[in-house]
Each structure stands twice: as structure tokens, then as C-alpha cells.
Write a protein that binds this DNA or RNA. Sequence first.
DNA 1: AATCTATTCAAGAAATTATTTGAATACACA
DNA 2: TGTGTATTCAAATAATTTCTTGAATAGATT
Lengths: 221, 221
Amino acid sequence: MSSNGFKQQLFAQFARIGKAMSNGNRLELLEFIAQGERSVEELAKVAGLTVANTSQHLQQLRQSGLVTSRKEGLKVYYRISDNDVIALFSALRGVADRHLAEVTLLVQNYLTSRDTLEPVPHHELLERVRDGLVTVLDVRPEEEYVAGHVSGAINIPPGELEDHLDELDAGHEIIAYCRGPHCILAFEAVARLRQMGFNARRMEDGYPEWQASGLPTRKLQ
Amino acid sequence: MSSNGFKQQLFAQFARIGKAMSNGNRLELLEFIAQGERSVEELAKVAGLTVANTSQHLQQLRQSGLVTSRKEGLKVYYRISDNDVIALFSALRGVADRHLAEVTLLVQNYLTSRDTLEPVPHHELLERVRDGLVTVLDVRPEEEYVAGHVSGAINIPPGELEDHLDELDAGHEIIAYCRGPHCILAFEAVARLRQMGFNARRMEDGYPEWQASGLPTRKLQ
DNA sequence: AATCTATTCAAGAAATTATTTGAATACACA
DNA sequence: TGTGTATTCAAATAATTTCTTGAATAGATT
């Protein structure tokens, strides 16, 4: 009798993995962790969760064997336990893409909505910055940023986007700009950010036009 | 603003797949369905669930796109929607095998426990049959079964096991016997059944010994 | 038409999960 | 040694899930 229900016990264990992946926030955390080792604080910020809540989700991920953690000084860093977890995640993503009509719809809708393709006009941006709703991203080289930028904007030079993801808040919409209305850097940044799942748009025109309109700017040094 | 939270919505959709796989009973159903099209009743029996409960689980599996169903007459047949679902399932299983210590333990324990390797003695079997706890399986050719078998045993001739899985109850322990204590058929059947996840053991001795002990038997015709 | 059968639906109880809040821990730095 | 910081823990609440029970449906069979 000791082995009775062996099969049930086994499937209950398999279900722990499913359970770990049964929550959108946990999946989002998992995806960020998949990009490289991350601290709890970073993860909380990027997922738009409280630190305590994030910590609890991370512990579930750890208990299900999907991630491991390591303490260094004050911080605890989480990482994917193994490549097979990445494979599992992408299998899940693939099944969702192919079999859930909602996903197809959602993606189509997002990529084609007027709202996401059109640049944000200056006046609209000003309001949203005031309300703390958006992150303004300057994608020009650092020298140009230092010489003057849209007030409140952060600078991530071209090509360094992937290394500075932790400076971006997933909950916020990101508005990117560079030198002018046809500057390719902003287009590229938006495309890249969207691929990574961020909610990104381009600002109408660029820094010179902003400055010329007398809108708030800032210089370093 | 219409696309705000796009990322969250997307992950929430991915989570539906995880949710579908977050329950042991559903995973067990999924595995049976993966072996081929099955009706609700068959699935309920093999998973040891009520029909209503099984139906509800199946609907969750269907809503998450993992299975599809087709109605024929009174019956509804469920099948895996696509091969990528099988791949997902086996990725999940693999991650569980490699990262959950409990799985390793469980399997090791099961394969090596005295309880599962030793044959069931006659007197123990009698009790359990009386209590309705076990399925007794006669693995001899049909002619021999017809000529006389252990009272209450069902017959699945050698080689036909895979075609008669629906006659077996996954909740029950299955006790297999054939001609005698060294008859290889019973050993094989137990090995095969265990591979398929059933809880199977061999009966001590075989039919001739059972009969000779004056224990309850039955003839057909 | 009446009955039977396989499945689904609906409602409710018990268990589990997600999130928030505030306190506890554990390490670093002054 | 005391203060600050990152993370975890613990308790409480709201929401969700699981399973049971009994009724409803829809297609066969008599």
C-alpha cells in the first residue's frame, strides 16, 4: 500500500512546475531573470510589484526549481536554474501563441493600433510627464545628452539598451526621442523595446524642435 | 494609453497555459489524452475522478487550447490539439525530473520498495479483493481464462495490454498473475503497466496454485 | 413519445492563492 | 556599536480553485 497513488504523487509534483508558471506576474519575473541575473529590487521595479510581493513570487519560482538564488552582501540575486527552463518557457509561449486566439488578437491589436504607431505630440508628453505616467528616454550619444535634453529624460545611448533595462519601469510607457523627426535611433529603440515587451512609443520630432518650442530642458555641468 | 499594460495582458494569457497544467489531475488527464482520443467516461475512470469533475477539468484544458473535442453520438471525445502540446508536456516533465528532488526520491523509492517488487501473497490478495481495493488481472491467453480463473479477475491476453487500458482503473492497484510463480507473462505485464504509470504488482504463484489451495475460482460456460 | 445515457451546467463548501501591511533578519558601513 | 538597506517573514483579507451534488441538455434507443 505504501506505493499506492504513486502516479498521483508524481503528477502532483509535475503540477508544481505548472503552478509556478500559472501567474502572469511570475512569468514576467521569470522572463526578466532569463535575461540575466537580477536582484529582487530590480525585478520588483521592472515588474511593477512591491518588493515583498516580488520576494514571495521569487520564492515560489525557487521552490519549483525554475530559478536559483545567491546572496552577495545585502542583495540576493536570482537566476534561471538551467537552460531547460528557458526551453520550457518558450514551449509554453509557443503553445500560447499558436492556440490562444486572445494572444494573436492582443499582439495584432498592439502592433497596428494608431495609438502605438503614431508619435506622441509634445503637449501630450508634457502632461504625462507631469502626471508621472511615462519614462522619457533620450537615445542620443551621451555627449549630446549632457549638452542638453528634455527635462526628466534618462539617457541610454544607442546599442546599450539591453544593459540598462533595469532603469526602465515596465509599468510605464516609454517615450523615446533623438535628434529629429526622422532620426532612426528613436525608431530602432522603440522597435527593440517592444520586442522585449515594453510599452514604447516615439516622441514627435526630436530634441532640437523641443528646445526651439521653449519647452523645459536641462543641461549637465 | 489603449496599449498600456500590453505586456501584463500578454503574460496573463501565457499564464492560462500554466494554470491548465497546475493541477495533478489535469496533467494525468492530459497524459491519457496524449495516448489517443478518449471519451470523458474513459478519462474519468482511468483518473479515478467523478465524471462531472473530469468534464470540468477537460473544459479547462480545452479553454487553454491544449486539447480539442469532438462529439460523436452521445459521446464527446477529447484529443491533444497539436504536437507542440506534447513537447510542452515533456519539457515540463523534464524540468520536474531534473530540478525537483521530490520527483527523484519518489521514483527511486517506488522502484526499489520491497512492497512493489515482492509478489502479493494469496491471503493478502483475498482481503483486498473483498475490500474492492484492487483489480486482479489475468494475463494468460483467453482460452485458459475461460477454462477457469481467479474469481473477479479480468482477462487481458499478452500483447493486448495497450488496447485495453480503459478496463483498468488508475486508482486501483493492479495484481497480475499467469500460470505459475515463474511465468514471465506476469512479470512483463507488471513492468509494462508500471512504465505507463499504473500501480502494478505480481501475484504470488499462479492460477494452478491458487486453485489447488481451494481459493475462489470461476469458469465461463 | 418516453426512456436512457453521456456529458455539461450551476451552486455551494472547503482549500488554496495573491496581495498588502508591518515587523524581523542579516549584512554593510560609519 | 549604532544606523541604514535589501530581503524575507507573518498575518490578514480578498479572490480564485477544487470538488461534490443534483439538475439540465442533447442525442440514442425502445
